[in-house]
Design a protein around this nucleic acid. Sequence first.
DNA 1: GCGACAG
DNA 2: ATCTTGTCGC
Length: 228
Amino acid sequence: MRIDIPHSWPRTEADAIAIQDRLRGLVDRVGPGPREPRLVAGLDVAYAEDSNRVAAAVVVLDARTLEVVERATAVGDATFPYVPGLFAFRELPVLVEALTRLESVPELLLCDGQGLAHPRRFGLACHLGVLTGIAAAGVAKTTFVGDYDAAALGPRRGAGVPLVDGGETVGRALRTRDGVKPVYVSTGHGIDLDTACRHVLALAPRYRLPQTTRLADRLSRDVLRAAR
DNA sequence: GCGACAG
DNA sequence: ATCTTGTCGC
């Protein structure tokens, strides 16, 4: 797929924040997004321990069978340091490169990180959604901003409570396995929270994390290891 | 001022 | 993110 980047990759924090502030207005928070998508993609990036080398992986699954339809990868060097809130600028370049090598066009992108649950409401999932024009949602392993009522979150798979920040619901703590710590789902672009959570649950029938991110995580590590 | 802080 | 084996539990 072809992707046009409406900005150059920033080198300073100030430039990065300016880009987020400019693109934030392009986010579609309503959706509703794909009701019964056939192709869903998981994305992840692996990091080398002693260098800036990074490897991105995109795994496209058939949403109904969870079978792998296509995989694409890219290796490069991170050009931006890890700064909470600007995390996307560290992963986007190599992720976009991998997406460019994709032949199929997924209907939903599931990112390893936040969407709207971000201090400026423009996490990785929002940025990726705006760049590609494809519906996107973030599935994070920990919260970044916002709080939720842990006591109100049922112990069973499927239970969920709003993740609130500054009086605004920015996502949902969603239990994907009985008695296991929830994942934090937030809208990225072109999809509503309910629909995003419905897809996350369908993609995570057995493990805490959706199969999309599990496979992308494993692939990115394999590619990184083979690249050095 | 101090601590926290997606991956 | 990454450094890391076995081990407790269902």
